[in-house]
Design a protein around this nucleic acid. Structure first.
Length: 298
DNA sequence: AGGCAGGTTCTTA
DNA sequence: TAAGAACCTGCC
């Protein structure tokens, strides 16, 4: 099916934004895996004569907005799109509106970062998948994180598709599936010392001691406390989980890159009050910009 | 070959 | 309560 998006949307930037690990260039499009769902999505903005099934983000004053959208071909049908992928891509929110909160004169660095990162969205991902992914992420670079996750999926998940390059695609294991792996098997997925953290998380969720679903109902502070109590979860991973797993857009994970930006560009402090409740979106722009250009860039 | 990477835990004061 | 060391693995 074909969708037209009239809001910030850039597949490459989303894939590179560090919030997802199973969203990769594949053939002439992108392979996206979330839980046990597989999607192939391709930019067809340049193709003429394709009929659009759904238009997203249409609004009366769109000509006034600075928007980076396009037309996309998706491997799912309309029903699957409405039921899952529309929310996954957070297409009910306007990221151009969020960007417009930034005042160029007041906060030029963030303004530049947001122009550069225009097209990034915060995906609505699954709390379980994000928890495991970000536990694994500690002290690892992105390629290493992705490699570990793929090994885990191949070992404990199940085959759900074949991607555009002919590779088997495996689901992200459910808590039950993952809990069946031994620490040694997890270690074999190149988890290093994180193997025991992942093992414990799976056991806790399967036993019911931890109920990630029920945590959707509790407030931000309580959620943070619950997450920090988990083995192998500190402040940074907890914030990633709150932002990417629970889609609470004010969470502001501070990793080494963001800390460099805050130190070098915001000695007087970042304007957290101003951007509330979207600080997490700003964090993504800063992160993407600094990773690409270096924190010293003005 | 030694250091370091998108942190957290464990140990020590 | 706070600073420092240790930690797997992979890649400079």
């Amino acid at each position: 099916m074909i969708i037209e998006i009239q809001d910030d949307f850039d597949l490459q930037k989303i894939a590179d934004s560090g919030q997802c690990f199973r969203f990769n260039k594949c053939g002439d499009g992108y392979s996206v895996v979330a839980g046990n769902q597989y999607l192939f999505i391709k930019d067809v903005s340049g193709d003429s004569g394709v009929e659009t099934d759904i238009i997203i983000g249409a609004s009366g004053d769109k000509d006034d907005k600075n928007i980076l959208g396009g037309r996309y071909e998706l491997s799912c049908n309309k029903k699957e799109f409405e039921a899952f992928w529309k929310n996954y891509f957070d297409l009910n929110s306007s990221y151009s509106d969020i960007r417009s909160l930034i005042d160029k004169a007041e906060d030029e660095y963030l303004y530049n970062a947001s122009e550069f990162g225009q097209g990034i969205r915060i995906l609505q991902q699954d709390p379980w998948e994000m928890l495991i992914s970000f536990i694994i992420s500690q002290r690892k670079n992105i390629p290493a994180i992705k490699a570990s996750i793929e090994k885990i999926c191949a070992l404990a998940g199940h085959k759900i598709a074949v991607d555009a390059e002919g590779n088997d695609v495996f689901s992200f294991p459910t808590p039950k599936e993952l809990s069946k792996l031994t620490v040694a098997q997890l270690s074999g997925c190149s988890l290093g010392y994180r193997d025991k953290y992942v093992y414990q998380a799976a056991q806790d969720v399967v036993s019911g001691a931890v109920n990630l679903e029920s945590w959707k109902e509790i407030d931000d502070d309580a959620l943070m406390q619950k997450l920090l109590a988990l083995y192998g979860v500190g402040v940074k991973v907890a914030n990633c989980e709150i932002l990417f797993g629970y889609h609470r857009l004010d969470a502001f994970p501070k990793d080494v890159w963001i800390n460099k930006v805050l130190d070098s560009q915001y000695p007087q402090g970042f304007l957290f009050d101003k951007y509330k409740p979207y600080n997490g979106v700003m964090q993504q722009y800063l992160f993407f910009y600094s990773r690409t250009n270096g924190a010293e860039t003005t």
